[in-house]
Simulated scan of single mutants.
Amino acid sequence: MIQDKVIQTFNTFAADYEHSVDHSALYNCEYERPTMMECVPKDLPNKNVLDAGCAAGWYAQQFVNLGAHVTAIDVSPEMIEATKRRVGDTCTVMCADLSAKLPFEDDTFDFIVSSLTLHYIQDWDTTFQEFSRVLKKDGTFLFSVHHPMMDQQLSPSDVYFNCELVKDTWKKGGKSVDVYYYRRPLQVIINDTIKHFTFSRMVEPTPTENFKKQNEESYQKLMKTPAFLIIEAKNDKGRA
C-alpha cells in the first residue's frame, strides 16, 4: 500500500527533519514556512490548534510559542517521537492517520494547519469532512501542498488534468529515497476545498532573499515555476 510506503519513507526522514531541515532545507525554512507563518491567524493565544501532519514538530513549536493549546498528529511514529523530543509536555502529540476518522470530538479546534502533507493522501473527501467536523464554526483551515506546476514533470501520463500517483527521488542524509505522492490539477485542489469549506485566499509563495543568497539557481527556478501552493479557508458550518 502507498500509505505504508509513506510511513516508511518519513520514518527514514525523521532524523533529518529533526536535526537538519530547520536550517539547511531552503525549500522549507526559506520558502514555505515564512509564507505560511504570515498566513497564520494573529489571535492564537489560548486557542486550540491542530497541527495535522506535524513531521518533526517545527510548526507545533511555533504555535506553542504563540500561546496556543496545540495538538500535533502525524502518521509516522518516528516523526511523532521527534516532535515529542522537541515540544516535551507543552502540547499533545499522537500518531494518527489523516485519511481516517480523527480521534477528536466535534468542534474541538479553532485553527487547523497542514503543512506539505495532503498530497500524500489520495482521497481528500474523508480528510476534509473530518477537518470540518473537528474545526469550530468560522475556524480557519490553512494548508500547503505541492504546486501542480512542480509535479507536472513527474506525471506518468503527462496529462495535466489527471489526478495520479507520482514518484520522486529525494536525497536525505546522503541517501536517495523514492517518495510517492499524488498530484492534482489546480481546479481539483480548489474544488475539493470549497466542497467542505469557504475559500478565503490562495498564495503562491516566493523564496526569501536569504534563499537567493544561498542558492541563486534554485531561487530563479522557483520564480519561474512555483513549487508549493498555500490555501486558506473558513469553516462556515452554517452555509447551505
Results as ranks from 00 to 15, higher is better:
M1S: 14
I2Y: 15
Q3I: 15
D4V: 12
T9P: 04
N11P: 00
N11E: 03
F13P: 04
A14V: 09
A14E: 06
A15P: 00
E18F: 07
D22P: 01
A25E: 14
E30G: 00
E32G: 09
R33P: 02
T35Y: 09
M36I: 12
E38Q: 12
K42I: 11
D43G: 04
D43H: 06
P45S: 09
N46Y: 12
V49H: 06
L50R: 12
D51T: 11
A52E: 08
A55M: 08
G57Y: 04
G57R: 03
W58G: 03
W58S: 13
Y59H: 11
A60V: 07
N65I: 00
G67P: 02
H69I: 12
V70W: 13
V70D: 07
A72L: 14
I73W: 07
D74T: 13
S76E: 13
S76N: 09
S76F: 09
E78R: 01
E78N: 06
I80A: 09
E81Y: 00
A82L: 03
T83Y: 03
K84S: 08
G88P: 05
G88V: 01
G88K: 03
D89C: 08
T90C: 11
T90S: 14
T90L: 13
M94T: 12
M94C: 15
C95P: 02
K101R: 15
P103C: 11
P103A: 10
E105G: 11
E105I: 05
D106E: 13
D107W: 07
V113Y: 07
V113D: 00
L116I: 13
H119D: 15
H119I: 07
Q122Y: 14
Q122R: 13
D123S: 12
T126H: 14
T126K: 15
F128R: 01
E130R: 11
S132G: 04
V134G: 04
V134M: 06
K136C: 09
F141R: 06
L142K: 07
S144D: 03
V145K: 03
H146C: 05
H147M: 06
P148M: 04
M149H: 09
S155C: 08
S155A: 15
S155G: 08
S157H: 11
V159K: 13
L165K: 14
V166H: 05
K167Y: 02
K171Y: 04
K172C: 12
G173W: 06
G174Y: 08
G174T: 09
G174I: 10
S176D: 11
D178T: 02
Y180H: 11
Y181Q: 11
L186A: 10
V188H: 07
I190W: 07
N191H: 08
D192Y: 02
D192L: 03
T193Q: 00
T193I: 02
I194Y: 05
K195G: 05
H196S: 06
F197S: 05
T198Y: 02
F199S: 00
S200P: 00
V203A: 01
E204G: 01
T206I: 13
T206P: 01
E209G: 00
F211R: 01
Q214S: 10
N215I: 03
N215R: 05
S218T: 08
Q220A: 09
K221P: 03
K221C: 06
K224L: 11
P226S: 01
P226I: 02
F228Q: 13
L229K: 06
I231D: 07
A233I: 04
A233R: 02
K234S: 14
N235S: 15
K237G: 09
K237F: 05
R239Q: 08
